[in-house]
């Protein structure tokens, strides 16, 4: 499974998104401001799920709204963290 599919799968599970939203997701799909469920609580849950899945650690100071702008920016962040660990 590609990183894109893995990240979308994690988002779907954590945010309990319906299949209609998930099927239309692309790299350009906006997260912040576009998905009502996407708030600071969701961010913490998503980061925990990503840490568990990929085995990296994200420090509080690394958390930035830019990471969660789109699916693409989140995947870039995951790939960067994965390559560091």
């Amino acid at each position: 499974m590609s990183v894109q599919h893995q990240v979308i799968s994690i988002l779907t599970e954590v945010l309990q998104l319906n299949s209609g939203i998930v099927s239309t997701m692309t790299l350009d799909t906006h997260l912040l401001g576009a998905i009502p469920e996407f708030d600071s609580m969701a961010v913490v849950s998503i980061l925990t799920a990503l840490e568990d899945h990929y085995g990296f650690l994200v420090e509080d100071d690394e958390i930035d709204a830019g990471i969660f702008e789109t699916i693409g920016t989140l995947i870039t962040f995951v790939e960067k963290k994965s390559s560091e660990s």
Binding site: D39, S40, M41, V43, I63, A65
Partner: peptide, 8 residues
């Protein structure tokens, strides 16, 4: 700080 752990 809106996407940070501050709120929680």
């Amino acid at each position: 700080f809106r996407m940070s752990p501050v709120f929680l």
